[in-house]
Design a protein around this nucleic acid. Structure first.
Length: 437
DNA sequence: TCTGGGGTCCTAGGACCC
DNA sequence: TCTGGGGTCCTAGGACCC
C-alpha cells in the first residue's frame, strides 16, 4: 500500500461534534429531559448508545446492556428512550447544512461529526469563529457542540476530547507547549485510531499516552502497526496525512441487520425478517442509484447465550446487477436456505449487498453474455421493474413506511423489534408534530 | 430474562497465470 | 531424481470508526 503525506493540506483543521448527540436531539423537543440523567437505547432497547453528562456521572458505561444498570434507573430516575434515527438523521442534516454556510470545506464524517478546513481564517479569528459556530447551531437547531482545532485531524480530535472533558466549547492546539501538554494528558487508548486490540500491545512497548506515541519513529510504527501506525505517529507530530474529504463517495456495500424482538427458530419466521431487510435494502440502493451484483445473508444465535453459538451464511449472485426489490427478496430467501439450520434459537439476521455499481453502467459480464435481442427484452423488463419500485417508494414516502409492503414480509411478523420508548418523529412526520397546548 | 447496527481500510494467503 | 519466481486478483478476517 502506497503512503503519501498530503500535499496542499489545510494548515488548520476543526472537528465539530454534537455533545451527547442523540440525547441532545431528544432534548430539543422535550426540555423536561434537561439536567436529568438520560439514556438512548440501541435497536430492540438493548443497550445504551448515548448518555447525557448526568448519566455518565452515574457510571453508566457506553454500550452497557439495559439490564446491567436497571437498579440505577429506579434509584436515580434515569430517563430511558428508544432510538429515533429518523429524528437524529434529520437534525444532523440541518446541522451539516448550517456548517456549510460558514465554509464550503466541510467533510461530513458521521451523523454527529464534521471536519472543517479553517486555513483561510487569520490566526486571531479562530476562537471568535468557533464561538460564532457554537452560538449559531445552538440558536438554529438547539444542539450544543464542541470544537477542537489543530494542524492535523488526529490532533484536532485530541483537542476536541480535552475540550469536552473540561466543558469548554472549543480548544485550539497551536503551540508546541500546548500540543505536548494535550498529548501527555491523553491516554493512548483514547487516541483516534487506537482501539481495544492495539492499546495493550502499545503498552507493552511502554507507550501509555499520545505523547509517548508522538516520540516514536514513524518507521517503527509502520513496522508494528503497518501503514495506519505510521500515519498516526506523523499526524500526532503535526504532519497532516489524512486529507479533508469533502466529496460524498458512493457506498461500497450496504447492509441491513436487525436482532429480533423474540428468539425465532422456524425458517418461515426468519424468511419474513430477511424479506423485510431485503425491502429496506432495495429502498437504500434505489435512493443512491446503486445496483448490487452479490447478496450475502446470515442468521445467528446470540453470542451471549449459554447454548452453543451458530452463525450460518449464504451467498447468491445475480446475472445482472439489480436494485429490484422482487429480485432481492427472491435472492435473499435462496441465500437464507444455505444459511439456515433447524434446531437453533436465532437472535438476529442480516443481509449484505456487495460489489455495488452505479445505475446506468453496463458490466463487462452483460457486455459479453447478451445478444442485442436479449438486451432489448431485458431492458423492457427492467423498465417495468423500475416503474413498479418507484411507484411503491412514492406511496411509502407519502403514506409512511410499509403502507405498501410485500406479502413475504409477513402480515403480523414475529421478528418486530421492541421500541417501547420512542419519541415522536417531530421533524419528518406531519402526524407526529410537536403540539403546543 | 434482557447485550445495536452500519460503515471503511488493510493484510495475508490462496488461486491462477506466464 | 532433479521441480522457479514474479505478478495479479479475489476473499476472509481483523482492525478501526461512529
Amino acid at each position: 500500500m502506497s503512503f503519501t503525506v498530503c500535499a496542499n493540506s489545510p494548515s488548520l483543521f476543526a472537528i465539530i461534534d454534537g455533545n451527547n448527540f442523540f440525547v441532545s436531539c431528544e432534548r430539543v423537543f422535550n426540555p423536561s429531559l434537561n439536567n436529568k440523567p438520560v439514556i438512548v437505547l440501541s435497536s430492540n432497547d438493548g443497550c445504551a448508545i448515548a448518555r447525557s453528562n448526568e448519566a455518565k456521572a452515574l457510571g453508566i458505561p457506553m454500550a452497557a446492556p439495559l439490564h446491567s444498570f436497571s437498579h440505577l434507573i429506579k434509584s436515580h430516575d434515569v430517563k430511558i428512550l428508544s432510538c429515533n434515527f429518523e429524528l437524529y438523521g434529520d437534525l444532523s442534516n440541518r446541522m451539516m447544512h448550517i456548517l456549510k454556510t460558514f465554509t464550503p470545506d466541510v467533510e461530513v464524517y458521521s451523523i454527529d461529526e464534521a471536519f472543517l478546513n479553517l486555513s483561510h481564517l487569520p490566526a486571531k479569528d479562530y476562537t471568535a469563529f468557533a464561538r460564532s459556530l457554537y452560538d449559531t447551531l445552538l440558536k438554529c437547531i438547539g444542539i450544543p457542540i464542541t470544537i477542537g482545532m489543530a494542524q492535523t485531524k488526529t490532533l484536532a480530535k485530541v483537542a476536541n476530547r480535552i475540550a469536552k472533558k473540561h466543558r469548554m466549547t472549543n480548544l485550539i492546539l497551536n503551540t508546541p507547549e500546548i500540543i505536548n501538554k494535550a498529548l501527555a494528558a491523553t491516554k493512548i487508548g483514547d487516541v483516534w485510531g487506537i482501539g481495544r486490540a492495539l492499546e495493550p500491545k502499545l503498552k507493552l512497548h511502554g507507550i501509555y499516552t499520545a505523547y509517548d506515541m508522538a516520540q516514536k519513529d514513524p518507521r517503527w510504527a509502520r513496522n508494528k502497526m503497518t501503514v495506519a501506525g505510521e500515519r498516526l505517529v506523523r499526524e500526532l507530530q503535526g504532519i497532516a496525512c489524512l486529507p479533508l474529504n469533502t466529496e460524498e463517495l458512493d457506498r461500497q456495500n450496504i447492509q441491513v441487520t436487525r436482532s429480533f424482538g423474540v428468539r425465532l427458530s422456524e425458517f418461515d419466521d426468519i424468511a419474513e425478517a430477511i424479506s423485510s431487510h431485503a425491502t429496506r435494502l432495495g429502498e437504500q440502493l434505489r435512493k443512491r442509484n446503486l445496483l448490487t451484483q452479490t447478496l450475502s445473508v446470515f442468521c445467528k444465535t446470540s453470542p451471549f447465550s449459554k447454548m452453543s453459538y451458530y452463525k450460518g451464511n449464504g451467498i447468491v449472485g445475480f446475472d445482472a446487477p439489480t436494485n429490484d426489490t422482487r429480485a432481492l427478496i427472491k435472492g435473499a430467501i435462496q441465500a437464507l436456505k444455505q444459511a439456515y439450520q433447524a434446531g437453533h434459537s436465532f437472535q438476529s439476521a442480516g443481509i449484505h449487498a456487495m460489489n455495488l455499481t452505479k445505475e446506468g453502467a453496463v458490466t463487462q459480464k452483460q457486455l459479453f453474455t447478451e445478444t442485442s435481442h436479449q438486451k432489448i427484452s431485458l431492458t423492457k423488463q427492467q423498465t417495468q421493474s423500475k416503474k413498479l419500485n418507484q411507484a411503491i417508494d412514492a406511496v411509502n414516502q407519502r403514506q409512511g413506511k410499509n403502507a405498501l409492503f410485500w406479502a413475504s414480509n409477513g402480515i403480523n411478523p414475529r421478528y418486530n423489534v421492541k421500541q417501547n420508548q420512542r419519541s415522536p418523529r417531530y421533524t419528518t412526520k406531519w402526524d407526529e408534530l410537536l403540539l403546543v397546548g
